[in-house]
């Protein structure tokens, strides 16, 4: 069987390499070469438009982040408000809930690989002084970070990723929010001196398969794809944590320093970001995300603002 996978991240990125390619390798090995997966990148379809061609069957598999398809549903991105614990995600029924939800969109959920046990950080031009830590700063971030940035006294700025380097350089913005991998790739260490601690929140990616294509496979192959997805979920957090550690070490070598949120801010970080993510999700898909939140709260899988 030959399958066509679409990835939202370019072929050199850590996520494609460490998650998508790893899955492809796993499946190839487990099926003894019977299932082959070809990978297409964002040059074929831009990340924000990738869900549609997979549901319509142009591609069989999709490796993406929920934030890339908030134009269709808020469910995928809302998972970012849930603590990293793949076992709990399955046992609580949350995984199945999301699977059933995406089935309606013509997609089969294969895996929800977390991108590390923690999710986000800020890159700042100047170190943090006092609370709230981002007071008076203009900070670039996607919608995910808006409420966190505001909660920390900063002013959120929306701008395209390509503009960030020169905007930091020229002081159009004072900082940028980002995940724990990629700051070095983007060269932000050349234009900003600090990354913040503690890191906060968590973030997940998704592996989907076109539902019709999935149903067309025999049961053994279906099981194989799902089993390998499950194994992948348990594996990725540690791998990406290790990569983040390596990146920080390298950033320090290149002259970047840590800067710490004071305790009053630090203890609110997780709750701020989770609350913001739930709200975004509920705005997009009120019923489904409220259900998700209920499941997560009943099982102590999220922290939110009281």
């Amino acid at each position: 069987t030959e399958l066509r996978m679409l990835t939202s991240y370019d072929q050199t990125s850590a996520y494609t390499r460490e998650v998508a390619q790893r899955y492809i390798a796993r499946v190839g090995e487990a099926s003894q070469g019977d299932i082959k997966i070809n990978l297409n990148g964002p040059d074929v379809v831009s990340p924000f438009e990738q869900l549609e061609p997979v549901s319509s069957g142009v591609f069989d598999l999709l490796y993406t982040h929920g934030a890339y398809h908030t134009n269709t549903t808020g469910v995928g991105a809302a998972m970012d408000a849930v603590f990293v614990n793949p076992d709990a995600t399955h046992e609580s029924g949350l995984w199945e809930f999301i699977d059933t939800y995406y089935n309606e969109l013509g997609l089969k959920l294969i895996a929800i690989p977390p991108l590390g046990s923690s999710g986000f950080q800020y890159v700042l031009k100047e170190p943090i002084e006092g609370t709230p830590g981002l007071e008076g700063r203009r900070v670039r971030g996607s919608a995910t970070y808006t409420s966190t940035t505001q909660g920390l006294g900063g002013t959120p700025v929306l701008m395209s990723g390509g503009d960030v380097y020169s905007s930091l350089d020229r002081g159009v913005i004072d900082g940028a929010a980002w995940g724990l991998n990629g700051v070095e790739d983007f060269g932000w260490n050349e234009v900003a001196g600090y990354f913040t601690k503690p890191t906060f929140g968590q973030t997940y990616t998704y592996l989907f398969m076109n539902l019709t294509a999935f149903n067309a496979l025999d049961e053994a192959k279906q099981d194989l794809l799902l089993e390998q997805g499950r194994a992948l979920e348990n594996e990725t957090a540690a791998i990406l944590d290790e990569l983040a550690q390596q990146e920080w070490a390298s950033l320090r070598e290149k002259g970047m320093q840590e800067t710490y949120f004071q305790p009053a801010d630090a203890e609110r970080l997780d709750a701020l970001v989770n609350e913001g993510i739930w709200q975004l999700g509920i705005d997009k898909s009120p019923e489904a995300v409220s259900n998700m939140r209920e499941i997560a709260e009943q099982n102590n899988m999220t922290a939110t603002v009281e």
Binding site: V45, E49, E52, S56, G57
Partner: peptide, 9 residues
């Protein structure tokens, strides 16, 4: 199936 890709481009 490619209509979506067409329109989105």
């Amino acid at each position: 199936a490619g209509f979506g890709m067409f329109a989105n481009s």
